[in-house]
Design a binder for these strands. Structure first.
Ligand SMILES: NC(=O)c1ccc[n+]([C@@H]2O[C@H](COP(=O)([O-])OP(=O)(O)OC[C@H]3O[C@@H](n4cnc5c(N)ncnc54)[C@H](O)[C@@H]3O)[C@@H](O)[C@H]2O)c1
Ligand SMILES: NC(=O)c1ccc[n+]([C@@H]2O[C@H](COP(=O)([O-])OP(=O)(O)OC[C@H]3O[C@@H](n4cnc5c(N)ncnc54)[C@H](O)[C@@H]3O)[C@@H](O)[C@H]2O)c1
Lengths: 252, 252
DNA sequence: ATGTCTTTGTGAACGCGTGCACAAAGATTG
DNA sequence: CAATCTTTGTGCACGCGTTCACAAAGACAT
């Protein structure tokens, strides 16, 4: 998984394991598809296959929510959709602000998947004065100066950061000070937040690097010794000395 | 973590745990920043703080790569940057194709973070004939018909899927058939791939839902009984019967 | 050389997550 | 109503990942 919560050491929220919570949206998606096809019930086996997980795991996940299945039959699709939606807090509307309306921010604003699950883009915020007033995805971009007011006025508690990495922590601090308690961060930085604030990150670069690692392993499966670096690390007092000229790696 | 590998049950790749691999890019980023500031060495404590992890965990992670530290001093920044880069396969160039050049695909194509880590956008591919030939981020979009040829000609092994969910599996199948063995999927679907192909997914909707779950818990911390659904699941033979009228949940 | 001080590398304990395997629940059939 | 069959819910064992805590390694001072 490319994402990871920050803070709160995977504390089991009201008995529901974090790993289970992370899978509930997956089940919900599969169930919604079944619901649209008017399928009345599913077995754990079928649903697990649709969600790409082990059926025992799925049953155990559902057992944390309660006993919503019927032995010999399976689960009632509509009922389960409702239960999971309620558990995830999707029966209410969540206003969301997106900060940093560049390439990515604009794409997110245009993303239809937001509204379809109870999330509503309450505002688009950017520091560039030239952006202010411009409509993106039908919403007028507002200036950063308005950030605190916007969050307060709309009762927003979820913020999305799509600014350059350098501005992310600063934006984060302002969001938190303004009352935001959940942040989805797209900037490649480790955000530090106070206790009680949840941060999840989406990091494209990390995902690619993980893929590259496995890709490399596949490629050099039966190959002999890899190209090892000849000299061991600089030790003693030749620290930043007469330029040992280390192997050129990537710039940034 | 919002992402998760598919297939291969977290098998320990050449002794390096999957969890460690996922953190290496994080360390690399912190180390690169130190390198740019010409910091010669770091202690595990400092680096761990910068990467937002436990220092013991960091030391154990590095121990899987070998003993690259010096007791009493710490780690040589440049040397460690090189070792991690090599381990992740970043000393070589990885050509990548992006399929589906819509809002998101275009944003990804414009993303600078690609090139800075050894990833090169080899081609942009879209099914829309109107897109063919159009330049996005300085690269001319090519039609899906060319997919197999492009991958073969450029020796591409990593593909990014940014098409609508409905087309994702189909695109995935073509990519795999053409020789792609690593896929980064942005479409909200469970992709099924043959053994040996790695899939990582980035799912914005899931991330938000997980945040909403925790947000809901924070809000209703000391509150009394939640709004429970009155009627238990439909049982017996009233299956899709005279319309029990279940509570209206979200549409899609 | 010897001693002190810092920091690594890792043994060990613990907790979480996963998946097997099965008893029990209930539907369904005769 | 009894028998049979399907599928849930979960006890249990196992393995991975995390963290503590500390011995040993090495730098540095005297
Ligand atoms: N584009 C991608 O596909 C992609 C992928 C992964 C990660 N990212 C990350 O997402 C972030 C945004 O990427 P992008 O390509 O959209 O960049 P971009 O430069 O196109 O957009 C950044 C936007 O943030 C605004 N901004 C800058 N400082 C701000 C501040 N303090 N407050 C509010 N707004 C501010 C800028 O005006 C600009 O509109 C970057 O951190 C990038 O590394 C982007
Ligand atoms: N926009 C976002 O911020 C965002 C966020 C998360 C997830 N997603 C997901 O990413 C995907 C793309 O989102 P988007 O907003 O860019 O959508 P989009 O509709 O703007 O772009 C989709 C593109 O894919 C192309 N396409 C369609 N079928 C294709 C095929 N078979 N082969 C090749 N190309 C094909 C279309 O021509 C179009 O250019 C969707 O699955 C969406 O759910 C988007």
């Amino acid at each position: 998984m490319a994402t990871g919560r920050t803070h709160r050491p995977a504390t089991r929220s009201r008995g529901i394991p974090e790993a289970t919570v992370a899978r509930l949206p997956l089940y919900l998606r599969a169930l919604t598809a079944l619901s649209e096809r008017s399928v009345p019930t599913v077995s754990s086996e079928e649903l697990a296959a649709a969600a790409g997980v082990n059926s025992a795991k799925l049953r155990k996940d559902f057992s944390y929510l309660g006993s919503y299945g019927t032995r010999g039959v399976g689960y009632d699709v509509e009922y389960l959709v409702y239960q999971i939606s309620r558990e995830l807090g999707l029966t209410q509307d969540w206003p969301v602000v997106i900060v940093g309306i560049g390439n990515l921010g604009a794409a997110l604003a245009n993303y239809g998947g937001f509204a379809s699950r109870g999330f509503r883009v309450a505002a688009l915020i950017d520091a560039d004065p030239a952006m202010a007033g411009k409509p993106v995805a039908g919403i007028s971009v507002q200036h950063t100066d308005e950030l605190e007011r916007i969050i307060d006025d709309n009762g927003v508690s979820i913020g999305v950061i799509a600014t350059p990495a350098g501005a992310a922590q600063q934006v984060c601090d302002r969001l938190v000070a303004a009352g935001i308690t959940s942040i989805l961060n797209f900037a490649p930085t480790v955000l530090s937040v106070p206790e009680g604030v949840d941060v999840r990150k989406v990091d494209l670069s990390i995902e690619l690097q993980i893929l590259a690692f496995h890709e490399q392993r596949k490629a050099g499966e039966g190959e002999a010794a890899e190209d090892r670096l000849p000299p061991p690390p600089a030790t003693k007092s030749d620290r930043k000395g007469p330029d040992g000229d280390l192997p050129a790696v990537m710039p940034a």
